[in-house]
C-alpha cells in the first residue's frame, strides 16, 4: 500500500512511453518556430541554386549569399539606417496609440462625435499616403516630423477601429452591472469598457505595428537622408540590387520581431486577453 501513488502514476504513463511523449511535447512547442524557419532555409537554398544555375544577373536577382556579403561589407551604416527606421516606426506607433485610444473613447462615448469624426477618418484612409507624403514634406519640412506623421496616418486607423469595436462590444449586462452599482462614467470606462476592450486593443496593435513599419518606409521614400527606405532608393538608383534586397529583408525581420514583441507583451501583461484570442480562433 505504501507504493499506491507510484503505482497509479506509472499506470497513467508507462515508463517506456514517457520519453516519446516528452519529445512530442517539445516538438509541439518548437513547431511554430522550426517549421517557418525550415521553409525559409529551403526557399533560400532554392533561390541560391536557381540564381547560380540560370546565371541570373545580380542587378536583377542577387543570390542570398551575395546579399549577405554586400550587406556585411557596409554593416556599420546599415545598423544606422535600421535604427533610424526603427525610431520612426516606434514614434509613429506611439503617436498612433496616443491618438487612437482617446479618439476611440470619444467616438464610442457619443453618437454626435462618432458622426462628426467617422467620415474624416475614412477620408484619411482613402487618400493614398504615398501621394500625401510629398505634401506633408512641403508643409512640415523633410524631417522626422513628416516621416512620423506619415507613419501615424498609415498606422492609426486599424487601431482606432479595433479599440472602438472593443469598447462597443461590451455585453450590455456588464454595463448594467456597473450601472446597478452607481458607477460613474469614468468608472464604467476604466473598470468595465477598457478592460473588456483589451483583446481588441491588442488585435489593433498587431495590425498597427506592421503598418507602422510600412508607414516609416513610405516616409523615408519622400523625406529622408537615412533609414532603410532611403537605403533602398539609393541602392536601386545605382543598380546595387543586393543592398536593396538586404534592406528589404531587414525590414521584414523588423516587422516580424516588432509584431512578436506585441504578442509577447500581451501574453505577459494580459494573459487572459491572449487566452481569449486563442479560444476565439
Amino acid at each position: 500500500m505504501p507504493n499506491a501513488s507510484v503505482d497509479i502514476s506509472s499506470a497513467a504513463a508507462p515508463p517506456e512511453r514517457r520519453p516519446a511523449r516528452r519529445v512530442r511535447r517539445l516538438w509541439a512547442g518548437a513547431r511554430p518556430v522550426v517549421l517557418p524557419l525550415a521553409v525559409v532555409v529551403v526557399l533560400g537554398l532554392a533561390w541560391e541554386a536557381a540564381v547560380r544555375f540560370f546565371a541570373i544577373p545580380e542587378f536583377l536577382l542577387p543570390a542570398p549569399s551575395l546579399i549577405y556579403s554586400e550587406i556585411m561589407a557596409i554593416r556599420g551604416p546599415i545598423v544606422g539606417h535600421t535604427l533610424a527606421t526603427l525610431q520612426t516606426t516606434m514614434l509613429g506607433f506611439g503617436v498612433s496609440l496616443a491618438v487612437s485610444l482617446p479618439l476611440a473613447v470619444a467616438i464610442t462615448a457619443s453618437p454626435a462625435i462618432a458622426n462628426a469624426v467617422y467620415p474624416l477618418l475614412v477620408v484619411t484612409q482613402s487618400v493614398p499616403k504615398v501621394a500625401l507624403a510629398p505634401i506633408l514634406v512641403v508643409v512640415f519640412g523633410a524631417g522626422e516630423t513628416s516621416r512620423v506623421l506619415v507613419t501615424f496616418l498609415v498606422a492609426f486607423f486599424p487601431l482606432v477601429i479595433s479599440i472602438a469595436t472593443g469598447l462597443l462590444a461590451v455585453p450590455p449586462e456588464l454595463v448594467e452591472l456597473g450601472r446597478s452599482l452607481k458607477a460613474t462614467r469614468l468608472q464604467e470606462l476604466f473598470r468595465i469598457r477598457l478592460p473588456y476592450a483589451v483583446p481588441f486593443v491588442f488585435s489593433g496593435l498587431k495590425l498597427s505595428i506592421t503598418f507602422s513599419v510600412i508607414g516609416a518606409v513610405v516616409g523615408e521614400f519622400v523625406a529622408a537622408e537615412r533609414g532603410l527606405g532611403y537605403q533602398i532608393l539609393a541602392a536601386t538608383a545605382f543598380f546595387r540590387t543586393p543592398i536593396a534586397f538586404g534592406a528589404v529583408i531587414i525590414l521584414s525581420a523588423m516587422g516580424i520581431i516588432l509584431f512578436q514583441a506585441v504578442v509577447l507583451i500581451e501574453r505577459i501583461c494580459f494573459p487572459w486577453s491572449a487566452q481569449e484570442e486563442t479560444s476565439r480562433r
Partner: peptide, 11 residues
C-alpha cells in the same frame, strides 16, 4: 442584484 446570467468580468 443577482442577474439572470452570471455576468462576471472575464479579466
Amino acid at each position: 442584484i443577482v442577474f439572470q446570467a452570471p455576468t462576471l468580468l472575464p479579466w
